[in-house]
Nucleic acid binder design. Structure first.
Lengths: 181, 181
DNA sequence: TGTTTATATTGGATCACACCTATATAGGTT
DNA sequence: AACCTATATAGGTGTGATCCAATATAAACA
């Protein structure tokens, strides 16, 4: 469901091929969503068969034709409806916490190893997010008087969300290591 | 994969039926994992066919026989291997951030509504986790001299993880609301 | 008396997604 | 000469999960 939102949301900004969408996702929403290339094409086909997008075929030579997908007005309506729909109750599935919950039987050293690995992950994540956030900031010229538009602020907010959670994870790791004595 | 770990991890504590496992999951790991009842039975069947668990049928009257599942030694080995395996790189899929990323086109009021809904969710989550954590604490009698064993600390740590993340989410919401001006 | 809850298992349908492969060509790299 | 990357699409297969429904009985509740 969310991948449909992602595709419609991106197509709402500009018409694109599946290939473009894949790159666009990697460049913009990768920090909270990832999508397999074949899944993108299948979902895109579903959008078309639901009338939420349509295809403009642009012939090319030497490679397959560009199948440029455009959001339809039904698609814009569906996107709006999805965005306004009540938040679904979230069912978290955290494989790391699962491990931690049961790793006790293996003893303290195995537990420490797991926490160390997690710290590595969280640190890398934090660094990656910070570097993307800095680039975002840098794109805004110092003398840029353009109104800092809502979309831009929200894109930045999703990055900040990841950063704050990564920091919380690291703080929790410190606390937890201490609790192991 | 993680559901297999969960089932083996719980079966390692005590033999159980699928029905028991469902309740056990709800009572112990629900804050980071949920599982559909039919999925539990199917996964349990997979464990048996892989030789990681076996079944003791205990006849009953008036209801289906108890099919009590016991972890095998191969199961204990597999559990240990899984717990020690390198952490898989996590691909986060966050539907809320997806919405937020695209909700800008609907304007500021819709954005605020989304953030409000999220605050409600996060507040409820935090309250629920805190109450479970307090119960966990209360179970430990004030004069309890028993060593605070590793498993217990780790179960508590998974709760603390949820609490810290919920707090981070609320802090992020405050920051984000301010950024909307 | 009728409904709900608890116990216990199982199957079908469907969804979302990941991993791998195939196709086709141009251009650049080793 | 052999390989990799970019462009562009698409199918096969498997896994994990959700939702829904059926079966069967006893006890508790309204």
């Amino acid at each position: 469901m969310s991948l449909k939102i992602a595709l419609l949301g991106i197509l709402d900004l500009a018409p694109m091929t599946g290939y473009d969408l894949k790159k666009s996702i990697e460049a913009s929403v990768a920090h909270f969503w990832s999508a397999d290339q074949s899944q993108i094409y299948r979902t895109l086909a579903a959008l078309v068969s639901d009338g939420l997008a349509d295809v403009e075929v642009i012939p090319q030579e030497g490679r397959p034709d560009r199948r440029e997908h455009h959001i339809t007005s039904a698609g814009r309506t569906a996107l709006g409806d999805w965005l306004r729909a009540p938040l679904e109750p979230e069912t978290s599935h955290d494989a790391f916490l699962m491990r931690l919950f049961f790793v006790g039987t293996l003893g303290v050293p195995a537990t420490r190893a797991l926490l160390r690995a997690r710290r590595g992950q969280a640190t890398a994540m934090l660094a990656a997010l910070r570097s993307v956030a800095e680039q975002e900031q840098a794109h805004r010229e110092p003398d840029d008087r353009a109104p800092d538009d809502l979309g831009r602020r929200l894109r930045f907010a999703t990055l900040r969300n990841g950063i704050l959670h990564a920091e919380a994870e690291l703080a929790w790791l410190v606390e937890t290591k201490e609790a192991l004595g």
